[in-house]
């Protein structure tokens, strides 16, 4: 078992890289969706809300299956497990992040918009200089929770054969002749990474002096 630790740690890096990339894309997509929701045009808002509700009402696993098996048939392109996993995780994260970002923007009072308008700021200027810095305080802590969820969800990439942390754990189990110790070690690696990240999140929350928003964070995966 001991000789496999370097392998496990290396694949933990793969998992972190995959989750980070998906989170980044998800955060960008989620922010774009949240900004679209700001526009006072009802059909557009319905589309955004529909997108969010859709991805919050279907399991990420079937999105992953579709991205890996379905999209190549549909578009006649080859999609690697890595691309499929990144795509599925990012789509899912973007739906959650758009909710988080919307809540952040909503947390900034109307008075700020009015003050900025009175001072002659344009909409993009107001967003960039007045609203975003204040909203970020509210957005950051739950984003850490979304990242943890994404990291846990990234384990599903093992089902379509991408060799990340979970798949490596299963391979180690096979090559050491079974036993549940490799799986226990696998769980421990995930726990240590996520627990460390959650502590960073908690510290961030304390720094920013805001109440817990764990209701947005508590997604199972």
């Amino acid at each position: 078992m001991m000789q496999y630790w370097p392998l496990m740690l290396k694949s933990a890096g793969t998992t972190l890289w995959l989750s980070w990339l998906a989170m980044l894309l998800g955060a960008l997509g989620g922010t774009a969706l949240a900004l679209l929701r700001q526009i006072r045009f009802a059909p557009l808002r319905w589309v955004v809300i529909g997108y969010m509700e859709f991805f919050r009402s279907i399991p990420i696993l079937i999105v992953l299956f579709f991205a890996f098996y379905g999209v190549p048939l549909l578009l006649e392109v080859d999609i690697s497990p890595f691309v499929a996993a990144t795509l599925a995780l990012a789509l899912h994260a973007s739906a959650t992040m758009s909710e988080v970002v919307s809540a952040g923007i909503a947390s900034v009072g109307r008075g700020q918009w009015e003050a900025a308008a009175a001072a002659g700021f344009s909409w993009p200027q107001t967003m960039r200089h007045i609203i975003a810095p204040q909203a970020l305080r509210v957005i950051l802590p739950p984003s850490v929770g979304v990242f943890i969820t994404t990291l846990k969800e990234s384990s599903l990439a093992s089902i379509i054969g991408y060799i990340e942390l979970t798949r490596t754990g299963l391979l180690v189990r096979d090559s050491t002749g079974g036993g549940f110790l490799p799986l226990l070690a696998l769980g421990a690696v995930y726990f240590v990474i996520n627990y460390a990240i959650s502590q960073v999140g908690a510290a961030l929350e304390r720094r920013l002096h805001i109440g817990r928003r764990s209701d947005l964070v508590g997604a199972m995966a």
Binding site: K152, S155, L156, G187, F191, N194, Y195, S198
Partner: peptide
């Protein structure tokens, strides 16, 4: 439970 993937728990 909050910091371990469900998939790993299922395999265990």
């Amino acid at each position: 439970m909050r910091n371990t993937p469900l998939l790993v728990i299922l395999y265990l």
